[in-house]
Design a protein around this nucleic acid. Structure first.
Length: 660
RNA sequence: GCCUGGGUAGCUCAGUCGGUAGAGCAGCGCAUUCGUAAUGCGCAGGUCAGGAGUUCGAAUCUCCUCCCAGGCUCCA
């Protein structure tokens, strides 16, 4: 007999050789039928693996993170089996579970390509395999046996021999050290896999193939491009349906769609990819964001600077950007006198030149230079995406020049400032990421990097937020902290970055004179809070689903007269509000009230004021607030204005669930 | 840059076998004067992304280019 411990701390006594499946059965029939895998001493395993005395065992069921992970992985296997059945000779590469689903990469014989229509056919075959109720059977082999077994599957051979050669240590886990484990349902299909899997294909079924995409083998641009099929899979029909609904919701708040609907911005074909124009309403939104940011920066002790959009090549030769990033800069303009000029992809070297414009004293430090700097980057054509990845953008960029001694406090203050500003825009769920020295692209000595990295790590920890490590993700000149924010529907976005830089001051030979009358090298901190104004706006639009807080709304109030003989009063109300800086318009009463209200609602205007006979008489307004169910009648105009001013001043955010 | 799929009126979309372009909304005009999410009638709107080819004839078939979407790669 053996004793195993359950997650609740209790123990169960089982027969020698019992598996997790037996354990589940001993606990109850319901759990026995739900069980798809087990977690033994923290390790995810098949249900059938024998347990040992003293094991800590948790039964994994589908409606859990681990459970979904297992069934997505198993569904990926079924996908591969279906593809192999339909395209004999197909090579299959890897097929992991991912967030919300799974994928599998293939290389079809004779360069055949999947089409969208194929997805439905493959799904059909998958459902047939599920209906066949095939068991997932685990087998173990030596590396040599594994190589023989998969001799017709070059990608599998590469994974197995990579482990033998020690080339890819991360693959060792994939196949379990020196043991090659495989899963097969039928002789038709066998896959190299660490497992675990659900006991049988009949446990699957709530899945949908989403799309086909290209993906490089091992993520390497220089290696063959495989065809990847993405799918989503869930524990129940309801969970699958809920996921699909959520995708639709995300699509509804897509900033590219709302940008058109709300008349904020557009991408005229005449300009080229990734180049946006902002319409009056989008322009207003930007202006409000920028004005607020400027005001806060003034308070925080920043100086405002400006720099041109183009420069001689020399500047970016000195900075090093041309060495590392020439391919993502616009090609140079060749002038008659042989000079090459570049559009700027970065503001930092300009700010260094401002620092160097005259001799600097330690008394001036920290010197904080801020600029809404427009930069141009030649993003690969496949990389541009709405406002979030563009070729022309404006950064809320600043560079802080300080001494080594000031660096730590400056970073602490900066992080506090960053988080406060982001909160003012209605984001409040953050974590931090620390990006360390890149393996290939980087300059500087080891100890400089060590000092920079440890200082940033300290400061990040002091902020009291979760900190995750992004190994090798830093810039070539220094490590960075980035602030990641979760939006209203749970997606995370990298927003602000704070980079520590010992290199540029050296490259430009920037210095200040200290109290010891000697020249010293300043430290440079690069930081952007929005990242780019365009991208930040896109994130906010999606966060709020277009229902911008009143202070950011391009149009804050629309006034509607009930009949056209109320238009004079409507204009009077608007004039009063406008005098207090409210962005307000009047829709004349030449169409029915209901239709004007509807239009204003669709435009997501925070307040619709309806004025009729009663209001003219009593100097009141009817207030129809965005997201509210019942309009308020007979609100005193001055009282409404006071409420509105208070809300705007407080930077109140709409309650996200209220505004739909 | 690469892979797959797209591009028809301002927007959303229909358009059969290759036979010469259609709806709703938006816009404009006229009428309507209305108390909280669509008043009625009328009008206008198109180089079917662009170019080349096949054909008696191309939105439709072929090729090239541009742009968009989803991925991969990249993101100072």
């Amino acid at each position: 007999m053996i004793d195993v411990q359950l997650p609740d701390g209790s123990t169960r006594t089982l027969d020698e050789g019992s598996s997790a499946r037996d354990l589940a059965a001993a606990i109850g029939p319901r759990l026995a039928s739900d069980a798809i895998a087990a977690q033994v001493n923290g390790e995810l395993t098949d249900l059938t693996r024998p347990l040992a005395d003293g094991d800590h065992v948790a039964i994994v069921t589908p409606a859990s993170d681990l459970g979904r992970d297992v069934l997505r992985h198993s569904t990926a296997h079924v996908l591969a089996q279906a593809v192999v059945r339909m395209w004999p000779g197909a090579h299959y590469a890897i097929g992991p579970s991912i967030r919300d689903g799974f994928y599998y990469d293939f290389d079809l014989p004779h360069g055949t390509r999947f089409s969208d229509d194929d997805l439905a056919r493959i799904e059909h075959t998958m459902r047939a395999i599920v209906a066949e109720d095939q068991p997932f059977l685990r087998s173990e082999f030596t590396i040599e046996e594994g190589l023989e077994l998969f001799k017709d599957q070059p990608f599998k051979v590469e994974i197995i021999s990579g482990v033998r050669g020690g080339a890819n240590p991360e693959d060792a886990g994939e196949i379990g050290g020196s043991v090659v484990s495989t899963y097969s349902n039928t002789p038709e299909f066998q896959d190299l896999c660490r497992g675990p899997h659900v006991p049988s294909t009949k446990r699957l079924g709530h899945f949908k193939l989403m799309r086909v995409a290209g993906a490089y083998w091992r993520g390497d641009e220089k290696r063959p491009q495989l065809q990847r099929i993405y799918g989503t899979a869930w524990e129940s029909k309801e969970a699958l349906a809920a996921h699909l609904v959520q995708l639709e919701e995300a699509e509804k708040r897509d900033h590219r769609r709302l940008g058109v609907e709300m008349d904020l911005f557009s991408f005229p074909g005449e300009l080229g990819p990734g180049l946006a124009v902002f319409h009056p309403k989008g322009g207003t939104m930007r202006r409000v964001m920028e004005e607020y940011s400027r005001a806060r920066h003034v308070e925080a002790g920043y100086d405002f600077v400006n720099s041109p959009h183009i420069t001689k090549a020399e500047l970016f030769e000195t900075s090093g950007h041309l060495d590392w990033y020439a391919e993502s800069m616009y090609p140079p303009m060749d002038l008659d006198d042989g000079q090459q000029y570049y559009l700027k992809p970065m503001n930092c070297p300009f700010h260094v030149l401002i620092f160097k414009a005259r001799q600097r004293s330690y008394r001036e430090l920290p010197l904080r230079m801020f600029e809404f700097g427009s930069v141009y980057r030649y993003e690969k054509s496949g990389a541009v995406h709405g406002l979030t990845r563009v070729r022309g953008m404006t950064q809320d960029d600043a560079h802080i020049f300080c001494t080594r001694e000031q660096m730590r406090q400056e970073l602490i203050d900066l992080l506090t400032f960053v988080l406060a500003l982001l909160r003012d825009f209605g984001l409040n769920d953050f974590y931090l990421e620390l990006s360390t020295r890149p393996e290939v692209k980087s300059v500087g000595s080891d100890e400089e990097w060590r000092e920079a990295e440890s200082t940033l790590a300290d400061v990040a920890r002091q902020a009291g937020l979760d900190l995750v490590l992004d190994e090798g993700g830093g810039a070539f000149y220094g490590p960075k902290i980035s602030v990641q924010a979760r939006d209203a529907i749970g997606r995370t976005h990298q927003l602000s970055t704070i980079q520590l830089d010992f290199q540029l001051p050296q490259r430009f030979e920037a210095s200040y004179v200290a109290g010891d009358n000697a020249r010293h090298r300043p430290i440079m901190i690069h930081r952007a809070l929005f990242g780019s104004v365009e991208r930040f706006m896109a994130i906010l639009i999606e966060h709020y689903a277009g229902n911008m807080p009143t202070w950011m709304s391009p149009e804050q109030v629309v006034v509607l007269g009930v009949r056209d003989d109320h238009d004079d009063y409507a204009n009077e109300v608007a004039a009063r509000l406008r005098r207090d800086g409210v962005r307000v318009s009047v829709e004349a009463a030449n169409e029915p009230l209901g239709s004007r209200i509807r239009r204003a609602k669709l435009e997501k205007v925070p307040y619709i004021l309806v004025v009729g006979d009663d209001d003219v008489r009593a100097h009141t307004v009817g207030v129809n607030a965005r997201g509210a169910n019942d309009p308020e009648r007979g609100v005193d105009l001055d009282e409404f204005l006071a409420r509105l001013r208070e809300e705007i001043a407080a930077h109140g955010s709409p309650e996200l669930d209220r505004a739909s």
